Computed example of a mutant assay.
Amino acid sequence: MTREREPVPGMGLTTGALARRLGVSPTTLRSWDRRYGIGTATRTEGRHRRWSPRDVAVLEAMCRLTSAGVPPAEAARAARGGAGAPGPPARDPDGGADGGADGDGRSRAPGALPLGDVRQECRGLARAAVRLDAPAVDDLLTAAVARHGVVGAWQDVMMPVLHAVGRKWETSGDRYVEVEHLLSWHVSTALRRATRRVDPPPPRPEPVPPAAPGPVLLACVPGEQHTLALEALTAALSERGVPTRMFGAAVPPEALTTAVRRLGPTVVVLWAQARSTASTPLAAHVADTHWGARGARRRPLVVLGGTGWAGAAPAGLPRPGGLGEALELVSGPYRE
């Protein structure tokens, strides 16, 4: 197998060099040329493509537009027009999209994620994630939070793509692990960026002030490493001005009860994504943890989050069905 040589100065980029620069595969470049007329007329004597600076500008615009969720045929027309590059009308003979989806919602392109019927923003995010285009992923996630808020961005943009990556990973062996890790890291970054500081209210001047609501304590149960859903709830609560304390993954039982006694939380959210980590006795123990002066003892409302708590929820331990429902339940005690 011969390695494609780097371009000679003045001759333009080779297909391999351009693919590495853009973060796409050479097959994608050839597909865009065949389908949409995004190509180059310059070839060497051996019939190898050479991509000029104008060709590169068109393809960079094409990548930006498809990452933003624009359908490839439309992106091709806009990219050619924006860069001033001539070319024939975009060809899309089978109605599909390279890295996108057919009219029936099923992808035909190698490496595309099984998204189904989702927002166009999801398709752009999926393309950027598969390309490992970290700046584009970050920009798209930030824009989604700004446009839809934390709950809308989580439910309508982040979750569909995360689930699609997970399904692809399960059916592809060890492939797409890097896509899942990169996407998860940037989702976490976007959620933490959206989490603002909320200070507790100052104490009232009465001799014996009424008990003010304590913060919401959020923690994964022992053995549970998945934190993204808790990070989403933390960010959504901060949007409503609710004070939180986020403890993250796999919090030991002793640390949970110690934190409850020290903080006096009004609500404790325990997250378990797998049945193997969910422990109803632990949840009941946390719910029965008291604090405060004798005669004015209090204990928290414990909310169970995640699919690990499948089945009927124990009495007094509510189990909301999603982020929106959890947000309403947990923020209830803090409404004036």
Rank of each mutant, 00 (worst) to 15 (best):
P71N: 05
L29Q: 11
L125N: 00
V70K: 01
T40D: 10
T44Y: 00
R49Y: 00
L13Y: 15
R106L: 08
A57W: 03
A83V: 11
A19S: 15
D117I: 10
R119F: 00
L22T: 13
A17T: 12
P110R: 04
S67N: 15
G95H: 10
G116K: 05
A101M: 10
R77Q: 07
L132N: 11
G116Y: 02
E45S: 12
A17D: 15
R106G: 02
L113I: 03
R127Q: 02
G100H: 00
L113N: 04
T66S: 06
A68C: 10
V118L: 00
D55L: 06
R21D: 14
G81P: 00
G39I: 09
A83E: 07
M62P: 05
A41P: 04
D98M: 07
L13T: 07
R47V: 13
D102M: 15
L29M: 06
A68M: 09
G105W: 11
D92P: 05
A75P: 06
P88L: 11
L65S: 07
P110C: 01
A75Q: 08
R80G: 07
G105I: 07
P114C: 06
A109W: 09
P72Y: 04
A109E: 05
R127P: 01
R34T: 11
L29R: 08
P26S: 14
